[in-house]
Design a protein around this nucleic acid. Structure first.
Lengths: 248, 248
DNA sequence: CGTGGGGTTGATTCTTATCAATTCGGGTGG
DNA sequence: CCACCCGAATTGATAAGAATCAACCCCACG
């Protein structure tokens, strides 16, 4: 993971990875940032239904958006990795639709939502970029709907593993997945017991190996084939030439 | 597919339902519109993976976004009702992630996506509004994920019926649902045969009655209770005061 | 009259949930 | 260093839910 220079805003760092930022844009983004906050694994950043006036960039650790039903069942809506923006999805809404929770110890930078307004007024390029990021988030939600709606447990888990590896940008075949099987089940819409069985099945197939939260992919092609994984949804290009010309 | 001339812009009409539009804003929106097109039931507006440079407002009829998997299974991602914008979700992307299809005979107004740029430059209020509409679309996707991931067939169908009634703004207990059980199944992630059984079950419970695509809700409270329907996700308020003050 | 698409119903099979018992591994306190 | 504890993972047995396959009905439409 890359190192962030002292004193630099982490949203600038993240956005700077996507497009070239000029000085005005850097100042606009930096102005949003005030502090870095720590949360421990399991802690909640905000509750579902809360008045929510801020969002966060995730500097380190894993987090998730989760919704609990009346009968106690849970559905994980998103898993956030370092560099992502937590709560962006609800940027236009005054009240949160889901609860945000730390999955590991995390560092986040909170930003007040309302000041986004200033950005819209002063930089069309940044407006475009926010739209693009939202569009990508939606693409992930859609892929999740397809995964849950039309694939069986084995395919769902295989897809999830490939997605995580892709999102973590791992070239190595082994990576760390610091979440338990209950969270995985609530993400994929299956029970934690069945997650365990499905992992065993993938191990028996010789596709993966795993211990202590380390996942070793022994047959990536097999997983992709099995799950029908289509990587294009993670790398869609923006429609605006204004942005496209400066995409990294 | 045919083309017909049209007097009043339908996007102005739709947006005008949500907020008060001043003359500048009306002109900006009207400028996007060129024509009205007709599609017959079953016709495709665009294909998945296509280069997509436009979106549509739906004047009349029902349409859907649908994705077909490699093995022929299908997942319906959205059902569009009159007044909605088709393709807004992919507004920031150059290539479509799903295919759009007419479910009945429809009238749509196509708009070039790229000119959205002009709107961002010239009206912050409209920019806010587009963000709000996207946020609401996401809220519906999330509700769909919860529905598919954590509810059984009966609950899913009950939820779907209540959602449709709510979105159609029906005060009457009876309304028209011009889609077949195969589409409903592909929306809810169950087989069409099971949709039929589930309808029968809801009929046996005395919650609904139905013939010829007409649905009569005989026990709305029962359906809401059964499905855990929460209407707040369809009526979230915007975070920006600029918009809030002129919301209708 | 046929014909075809959608809907219904029954029989069977497959997948996954649920419940329960057991094991594993890491952390804690004596 | 060891005994214990606790949450997570595993495994087995059973039950529930939904898919699949197949037959049949209904009806709109040529």
């Amino acid at each position: 993971m890359s190192v962030k220079p002292e004193g630099e805003s982490c949203i600038v760092h993240q956005f700077g990875k996507m497009i070239e930022l000029n000085e005005t844009e850097i100042n606009l983004l930096s102005a949003l940032e005030k502090e870095v906050r720590l949360f421990k694994a399991g802690e909640r950043l905000s509750l579902s239904g809360d008045y929510s006036d801020r969002f966060y960039t995730l500097k380190s650790g894993w987090a998730c958006a989760i919704k609990t039903l009346a009968d106690g069942q849970r559905q994980v809506l998103d898993i956030f990795l370092p560099g992502q923006i937590i709560g962006l999805r609800e940027i236009g809404l005054s009240h949160s639709l889901s609860e945000f929770r730390a999955l590991t110890t995390i560092e986040v930078c909170p930003f007040p939502k309302q000041r986004l307004t200033e950005i819209f007024e002063q930089s069309v390029r940044l407006t475009d970029l926010f739209f693009l990021i939202m569009a990508r988030e939606q693409a992930m939600l859609i892929e999740r709907i397809i995964n849950i709606g039309r694939r069986n447990a084995t395919e769902r888990l295989a897809h999830f593993i490939v997605e995580m590896k892709t999102r973590l940008n791992q070239r190595a075949s082994e990576f760390h997945m610091p979440i338990n099987q209950s969270i995985i089940g609530d993400t994929l819409g299956i029970s934690s017991v069945h997650v365990s069985r499905t992992f065993k099945y993938l191990r028996d197939l010789g596709y993966i190996e795993k211990n202590n939260g380390q996942i070793e992919i022994k047959n990536l092609e097999g997983l992709i084939e099995l799950s029908g994984f289509d990587r294009t949804y993670l790398e869609s290009t923006p429609v605006w030439t204004r942005l496209r010309s400066s995409m990294k």
